[in-house]
């Protein structure tokens, strides 16, 4: 077990390395270097450009030097907690994304929990009562859930709430807490707002995992060990829960590998639609205004977040499945 975990941990290093390269490439993609556009913004704003400051920035980011030097300077900065400078906000990136990142994580984790809490029992039900009216109902619902992109759900939800109740379901805080420092009241307010975006975000995942759980369990139910348990005189419910569900849980847990990236991905667009103070809207505006250090930092953090999530699911899987643990 320990060896397996260690092996997985070691694998994270090259993965993060590749992610950092991809992120850096994306930072570099817009034509011209960002200082040029920075100067352009300053000038169009009628501000005086301080040549000394420009030179200092040029040296700091190694502009004009070979690409790998620039990459090296960026990576060293990131490792020491310096993600660079946002030209749009005129603040260090770290200060900008800290809280938003935390909210993104909270949103993604909440959705993930919701996805599992809902899809697991429904999937079991659908498999055990295959072809029952309930199974058909959930099958239909899950197909619809898979077919409708979640930002459309968000859009329709916003419209519905607005036209029915004249209220906005967007945001993660009530107005009085939005800029307030964290307190217990703010946390409670946050939780009462969190469930709507979490539910919207979770719909696609729920639909997908119901299908997966149902298919897995249908594969397991006719297996011989289920018959063995039955032959021992076990009751049907406890038997299904102890054996086939337990075995079907393994592939189910391993789906976290793509559920989590999907949720993080989806949270970007859903956050834009629902106007949430997460990294999503900030990433979008950063990309639109080519504020590349900010965008790069968000991309990097989101990717690393999913890598960590996948790592956790791998370890969880090893703990669940003795065949992996004792490989």
């Amino acid at each position: 077990m320990a060896g397996y975990v260690l092996q997985r941990l070691l694998l994270v290093i090259p993965t993060v390395f590749v992610i950092s390269i991809i992120t850096f490439v994306i930072i570099q993609l817009p034509p011209g270097d960002f200082l040029t556009s920075y100067i352009a913004t300053l000038e169009s704003g009628g501000q005086v450009v301080d040549q000394a400051q420009i030179d200092a920035l040029r040296a700091q980011y190694g502009l004009g030097e070979p690409v790998y030097v620039q990459y090296w300077k960026w990576v060293v900065g990131v490792l020491s907690g310096d993600f660079g400078h946002s030209f749009q906000w005129k603040r260090p990136v770290v200060d900008l994304i800290g809280e938003r990142m935390a909210l993104t994580i909270a949103l993604s984790v909440a959705s993930l929990l919701l996805v599992w809490a809902i899809s697991l029992p429904i999937g079991i039900y659908s498999a055990v009562r295959q072809y029952s009216p309930g199974d058909y109902f959930f099958t239909f619902i899950s197909f619809v859930g898979l077919g409708v992109p979640n930002f459309l759900f968000a859009l329709v939800l916003m419209w519905w709430a607005y036209s029915q109740f004249g209220m906005s379901v967007g945001g993660l805080f009530s107005p009085q807490y939005a800029d307030a420092p964290w307190s217990l009241a703010k946390v409670l307010d946050f939780l009462s707002h969190l469930w709507i975006p979490a539910a919207v975000l979770a719909i696609g995942g729920i639909a997908g995992l119901i299908r997966i759980m149902r298919a897995n369990l249908l594969d397991e139910l006719p297996k011989l060990y289920v018959t063995t348990a039955r032959a021992k005189g076990m009751g049907e419910t406890s038997l299904v829960l102890k054996y086939p569900v337990r075995v079907a849980l393994n592939p189910f847990v391993s789906t976290i590998g793509w559920t989590l990236p999907g949720l993080v991905s989806g949270s970007i667009i859903v956050s834009v639609v629902l106007n949430l103070p997460t990294t999503g809207p900030m990433l979008l505006t950063a990309l639109q205004s080519q504020d590349m250090y900010l965008a790069g930092a968000i991309l990097l953090m989101l990717s690393i977040l999913t890598v960590i999530g996948t790592l956790i699911s791998d370890v969880l899987l090893a703990w669940l499945d003795p065949r992996i643990r004792f490989n």
């Binding site: 992610i19 793509w258 990717s303």
Partner: peptide, 11 residues
């Protein structure tokens, strides 16, 4: 597959 795709597309 383990990368969050939408931010990448956006980038």
């Amino acid at each position: 597959r383990s990368m969050p795709t939408i931010p990448l597309w956006l980038g």
